[in-house]
Structures are given as C-alpha cells and as structure tokens.
Design a protein around this nucleic acid. Structure first.
Length: 489
DNA sequence: TTTTGAGTTGTTCGA
DNA sequence: GTCGAACAACTCAAA
C-alpha cells in the first residue's frame, strides 16, 4: 500500500488544489479524500447556520464530483488530531497532505496534528493555497510585516510578478477501498440548525460558473466595469465570490489568473484595466488581512491600535437590537441589515455604512457588530471580517480615519440615488418619492399618506440624530487618544 | 539616524 | 449648487 490522506478544510475543490495534486502524484492517485466535521467549530458561537448550510452543500458537491471519477469523500466527525491519528492507523496511510490555514486556532490545531502524526511515522506535507502571498513572503526593508495597505500591495504585486501561477488540473484519484468507513453527511437539521436565509449554491462548479460569468460579462456588471459598478449596492456588479473563496470552492490563484488573462485583451490605459486592478486589489486586501491576523493575533480580541481599547461605548441594547433588525430609521442602514438577514450576504459598500453606523452613530463596540456579522454571513471569515470592522471603527491598520464618519443620508444619496436598494429590502418605503427615500422622516403627513407609510408606525423614525452622535463619537475617540498619551504608552 | 511623504472607500463649512 | 480647504496629530515605510 502506498496510500496518503488529503485533508480537505477550506479548499473544497479538485482543481488548483496544490496539496491534493501533490498527494495524488506522490501516491499514484491512491488518495483518501477526508473531511472532518469538527464539533468545536460547528458549535462555536461565531458559526452561523447559513455558513454551515453552504459548507454542507459544498461537501455534497465535492463528494458528487469525486464519485463521478470513482472516488468518494470520507467524512469523519470529532477532534481533528484524534480523528487523524485513528484514521491514519486504520487506513495505513503514510502521508498527510493539506493546505495551510492562518487563523490562530487553525495554526494551533495544525501544529498539534503535525506533531502527533510525525510521532506515528506519518509524514505531513502542507501547501500554500488560501493566500496568493503568504506571511513572510513580503516584508518591509526593516524586515517587519507591513501594516499599511498601499506599500503592502506594491510589494505583493512585485512578488506575484515573478511567480508563475500555472493551472493545476483536477487529479485522477483511485477508488477509496470499501473498508474505509465514512459517516453520512448530516443535514442542517441533524446539526440542530435551521435557516430561512437564501443560501447560494455551494461547490466548485458553482464557484467556477460565477467567476466565468463575472469575467465574461460585457456590461458594467462584469469585471471590466467593476470600478464604477461596485459602488452601487442595488446593482449586482460585484463578483459575489466571497463565500466560494471562503470555503475554497474557487482558488484565489484562479481568480488572479482570470483577471490577468482578461487584462491582456485590453490596451494599457483602457478603462477596463482600472477595474481589473481594483478587483485584484481586493485579492490583495484579503491577503493583507490574513497577514495582519497571522502576525497580530490579538486583533481578534481588541483594537489593532491599543489606545482604542479604552473607548467608552454606549452599548445600548435596544439600539443594537434595532440595528440587527434593520429598524434604525435610516433607510440605507436598514436595507443593508435586512439584506444580511435575508441573503446571508451584504454588499461591501453597505457593510461599511452599517459598520460606521453601529460604531460612530450608535457608539456600540465594533466587536458586537463583528460577532453578529460572523454569525450571519455566508462568507464570514475571521481575518477579513475583523479587518473590515476595525477599519470601520477606526481602530485598525488604516492610518488617518478618525474623521471618517459616514453620513447615512449622504451615503444613501450617493450610492443608491434612486433608492432601488432601499425599496428592494425595505418594502414599507417602496412608494416613497425619490426626494425623501433617504430621509423619510422629512415627509409631510400628506406625502406619507400618498406613499402608504406612516413614519413612526410603519417605519421607525431615526433612533438617533446623526449630527449629535457624530460629535459624540469625535469626542469619545479624542478622549481615548488623550488618555493614551497621558498614560504614556 | 533623521527626515520626508503619504495614508481605500468622508464630511462639513464657507466662499 | 459647486468647489476647495479644513478636519489632530501620528505612524509607517523608505530614502
């Protein structure tokens, strides 16, 4: 026997999978494809049902693809280290292959696994897959990790410029011996979960189809029009690949390759080039925040800039509940929160608006919002979610954001000018005239009657006054900085 | 070592 | 309505 194990984790695909390809070539296709349902993750408060549903769907798709070529996905349940030890012993595998993960918990888990298996004579091989440029591959001249995006991005691009990204085909795998047991893939209900959220179809084929469509679309809804279209949450002008990237249904390398390939079809200086660059920048942001988390794991518990741990939040529970429910009285905020509840996904512009609103208007601790997002989002990713929230809260890596307090009215007017996004997700306001769509509380009573909505009854009046809260937030942040200077940290 | 330029995504005020 | 300046001071990265 010369069997090896490929441990699927966040790489639920066959193509462009370096660990899987290496496992197949080392074993002449005698690969045992394994996924471990880890109860610690499944029952974590951060783990929402939408994400579990997407995971299960992706696992089903993976199993179907494997079966089509005579193999199958082996499912086990339990603590990964113990499961892998038993599984390696039972199967007689001499090697374990997996792609690297970078969150603190994942790294601790993987180190323990490597150690335990090495002690039992199983060689462990790990690969770069989830990131395009790993921590350590770029550093400042001083040898420190980058904490500012722009210079990071420059180096990141230089690094990639002399890295080949050849497509890795799906390997041919030999059938898994009958004797190898697998637990059946549980349903969502069997995991004691339900969701009424509209979940995207999981799996490699669905992800690839989505990427192809985004690359090929010729109007402002595709990659070539991304730079302009991406700013309007009412348009489906983003790739919406986040969940597929989150679970590795699509490879970041495949995304970059597709973008670079499209770029060759346009002259330098063509407007499409800017769109392509902007979108590649999003892949760089992803790596940037992974890298920040890898080097500064404390960001999961507190502010990247320590002085902002001292912020004295209001943390008003009723305000938090209203924010979650999409009943703040600010239409763009409420539309976004209802999109999240309905679709387990939110447009990126909208994420910034609601995050700014929670922290700067409601003065609620960004970690409350971070946790809620993690629970609700189909693409919830610890690194990216944390980075986004810290950015919005002004506690993160960005250098000068203290005055960047979004005005929920002007953001709405700027990025949802006709109110199409608001009308789609806040049906109470569907008939409100354009003039009032982002300020419904200013509608005279007669106008409210015509629009079939009474503010304060059918739709809330604003729960806070933006101008007042903005000043309070500025004072709060000023205070935290002043305290910090005084304490001499 | 010291210095210099710059920092994802904004808002408001006053001319 | 449009436009430019102001909004703290600080830290990072590189020369």
């Amino acid at each position: 026997m010369h069997t090896v194990i490929h441990w699927f984790r966040r790489d639920l695909r066959l193509r462009d999978n370096p660990a899987l390809a290496a496992a197949a070539s080392a074993s002449d296709g005698h690969v045992l494809p394994l996924f471990i349902l880890d109860d610690a993750i499944l029952s974590a408060p951060d783990t929402g049902s939408a994400r579990v549903a997407f995971l299960l769907d992706s696992l089903r798709a993976l199993d179907a693809t494997l079966r089509a070529q005579g193999s199958r996905l082996i499912i086990r349940r339990g603590e990964p280290r113990a499961v892998l030890l038993t599984f390696a012993k039972q199967s007689g595998a001499y090697g374990l292959y997996f792609n690297r993960d970078y969150t603190p918990l994942a790294r601790a888990r993987d180190t323990a696994v490597e150690q335990a298996l090495a002690e039992h004579g199983v060689a462990v091989h790990t690969f770069k897959e989830a990131m395009l440029v790993e921590p350590g591959e770029v550093a400042t001249k001083a040898g420190t990790p980058y904490t500012v995006y722009t210079p990071y991005r420059r180096q990141w691009a230089m690094q990639l410029a002399h890295t080949a990204l050849p497509a890795i085909p799906a390997p041919r795998l030999q059938p898994v011996p009958q004797a190898i047991e697998s637990v059946p893939l549980p349903s969502l209900a069997e995991l004691h979960r339900t969701t009424d959220q509209e979940i995207l179809p999981g799996g490699e084929a669905a992800g690839q189809t989505r990427l192809d469509a985004f690359i090929q679309r010729h109007n402002e809804l595709g990659l070539r029009g991304y730079k302009a279209g991406r700013e309007q949450p009412a348009l489906n002008a983003t790739s919406r690949l986040s969940a597929y990237l989150r679970f590795g249904c699509i490879a970041p390398a495949a995304c970059l390759r597709a973008a670079q390939q499209l770029s060759t079809q346009f002259e330098p200086g063509h407007p499409a080039q800017q769109s392509i660059e902007t979108w590649i920048g999003e892949l760089a942001w992803r790596d940037f925040y992974y890298q920040i988390l890898a080097y500064f794991p404390y960001v999961l518990d507190g502010a990247f800039k320590h002085q902002y741990d001292a912020l004295e939040w209001d943390n008003n529970e009723q305000h938090f509940a209203a924010w979650c429910a999409g009943r703040t009285g600010y239409p763009i905020v409420d539309a976004a929160m209802r999109q999240l509840a309905r679709e387990a996904w939110m447009h990126n512009r909208a994420r910034m608006i609601v995050a700014s609103f929670l922290t700067k208007d409601l003065l609620i601790d960004w970690r409350r919002g971070e946790r809620y997002f993690m629970r609700m989002l189909i693409d919830g990713d610890h690194a990216a979610n944390n980075g986004g929230w810290q950015w919005a809260a002004g506690t993160g890596t960005d250098a000068q954001p203290y005055f960047r307090i979004f005005n929920p009215v002007s953001q709405g007017q700027k990025f949802d000018p006709q109110g199409a996004y608001v009308r789609r997700y806040v049906p109470e306001l569907a008939q409100v005239p354009e003039r009032y769509i982002h300020t419904p509380w200013e509608m005279p009573p007669a106008e409210q009657r015509r629009a079939n909505v009474q503010i304060g009854r059918d739709y809330p009046a604003p729960i806070v006054a933006h101008a007042v809260q903005r000043e309070r937030a500025l004072t709060l942040y000023r205070q935290a900085r002043a305290d910090d200077t005084q304490s001499g940290v």
